[in-house]
């Protein structure tokens, strides 16, 4: 892989999203540019409605691109595909399949030539990795929200994607479960070094997980407001993080930005 591709592993160039409405076109996003080098963990943060989820779904291929381009590992994307693992806000497991079968559905699609035994091993490996060793054959309705999201994460990782797209994956969870899953995501990222784009509106989550935090201005026509280079050393631990000299500075920068945007929003509304 050339150095250029490594440096521009995920490349969003002049990305735009326009929804036609009765009152004329509604521009959610205009000329959005972002480059993520291989292995980097980037968090997109911003107020709701700023279009951060739109970006993510466009990268996933689930949302059409109005203008501009998205390329992953040097190839422009064309629709959705298993090369980009997606974890949605709701676990969106298929409720008629067990945890095991939910993961297996993707695995048998991505490894069509693997033997039955090999596939089984892959599924078991990833379910074990997310801490669901004992719940292979539980149905989604028998699992807690947190456990369902673990299955969702296992399903995404088991596809051996080139990159990970996390769309507020922990948004619906309670604080404790959230922490557990943040640890899980950090662990998996450390192991697999997958390029990751994560949408969140949790400042602490962004600081704990990311290498870079991209702050987005309010929509419509949202753009990159500021970028925070999060150089806190890995592996990170929740407690020692607080002792890191720049932690509060970073946190303040993020919160100040979000507050400013909030004020602007009110101002525009008034």
């Amino acid at each position: 892989m050339s150095n250029y591709v490594k440096e521009h592993y995920l490349d969003l160039v002049n990305l735009s999203k326009v929804y036609p409405t009765k009152k004329g076109p509604f521009v959610v996003l205009e000329n959005f540019n972002l480059t993520v080098p291989e292995g980097e963990f980037v968090c997109l943060i911003g107020h709701s409605g700023c279009g951060k989820s739109t970006i993510l779904t466009m990268v996933a291929g689930l949302n059409s691109i109005s203008n501009g381009s998205v390329s992953v590992a040097g190839h422009e994307i064309d629709g959705p595909g298993p090369d980009r693992g997606v974890v949605f806000q709701s676990p969106s497991l298929l409720p008629w399949l067990s945890a095991y079968d939910n993961v297996m559905l993707g695995v048998s699609k991505v490894y069509p030539h693997a033997s039955k035994k090999e596939r089984e091993d892959i599924v078991k490996h990833y379910l074990n990795a997310v801490g669901l060793g004992g719940a292979f054959h539980k149905m989604p309705k028998e699992l807690s929200q947190g456990m369902r999201q673990r299955v969702g994460i296992a399903r995404a990782f088991a596809l051996k994607p080139k990159m990970m797209l996390l769309d507020e994956p922990l948004g619906m969870l309670d604080a404790l479960t959230k922490h557990e899953l943040q640890d899980l995501i950090a662990k998996l990222h450390a192991e697999h070094k997958l390029t990751t784009l994560m949408v969140t509106h949790d400042v602490d989550e962004a600081l704990y997980l990311s290498d870079r935090v991209v702050m987005m201005t309010n929509g419509p026509k949202a753009k990159v407001g500021q970028i925070l280079l999060n150089d806190m050393p890995r592996p990170r631990e929740r407690v020692s993080l607080l002792e890191y000299p720049n932690y509060y500075k970073y946190r303040e920068q993020l919160i100040t930005f979000l507050e400013e945007q909030e004020l602007k929003k009110k101002h525009t509304a008034a």
């Binding site: 291929g61 689930l62 693992g85 969106s92 298929l94 699609k109």
Partner: peptide
């Protein structure tokens, strides 16, 4: 059908 489930199908290119 739940859009989430259709998304799964799309991502897996079923």
């Amino acid at each position: 059908v739940d859009q989430d489930h259709l998304n799964v199908a799309q991502v897996l290119k079923l």
